[in-house]
């Protein structure tokens, strides 16, 4: 509940402040967001499965974001940033879909 409220608070804050993304962060922000979404869906799934662990969630959230950013950064340094970020998005998308499928099964049994 707190988490949902915090999410809404963040959304509202973003809408209210409407900041501009610094150009140095621009390639990494979308990937970081997707990675964080992956962590969030994994956390929701774990919550529904009853195996949610706060510490694990925090660690997975941060590490997801960091690893995604590092991978994209490495890709940029290697000259394959576009392809690598696409790959990261694909992988995270697959994970998110898996988590969402599990959540859906858990909630709707379908």
């Amino acid at each position: 509940m707190i988490a949902v409220l915090a999410l809404f608070a963040g959304v509202l804050l973003g809408v209210w402040l409407d900041p501009t993304v610094p150009s140095a962060l621009q390639p990494y922000l979308p990937i970081a967001v997707v990675a964080a979404l992956d962590a969030v869906f994994g956390g929701v799934r774990a919550k529904l499965d009853g195996i949610f662990d706060d510490k694990q969630f925090v660690v997975s959230f941060i590490s997801n974001v960091l690893v995604a950013g590092i991978i994209v950064y490495l890709g940029d340094q290697l000259g394959v940033g576009g392809q690598l970020s696409t790959g990261v998005v694909v992988v995270l998308g697959v994970r998110i879909f898996g988590n969402v499928a599990a959540i859906r099964r858990r909630l709707f049994r379908a």
Binding site: A3, V4, L7, L13, P30, A36
Partner: peptide, 17 residues
């Protein structure tokens, strides 16, 4: 967790914007 999710929402909106 709340802070992380708030940051997530914030960044999400910022990125969308």
């Amino acid at each position: 967790i709340a802070v992380l999710l708030a940051v997530l929402g914030f960044t999400l909106v910022v990125q969308l914007r």
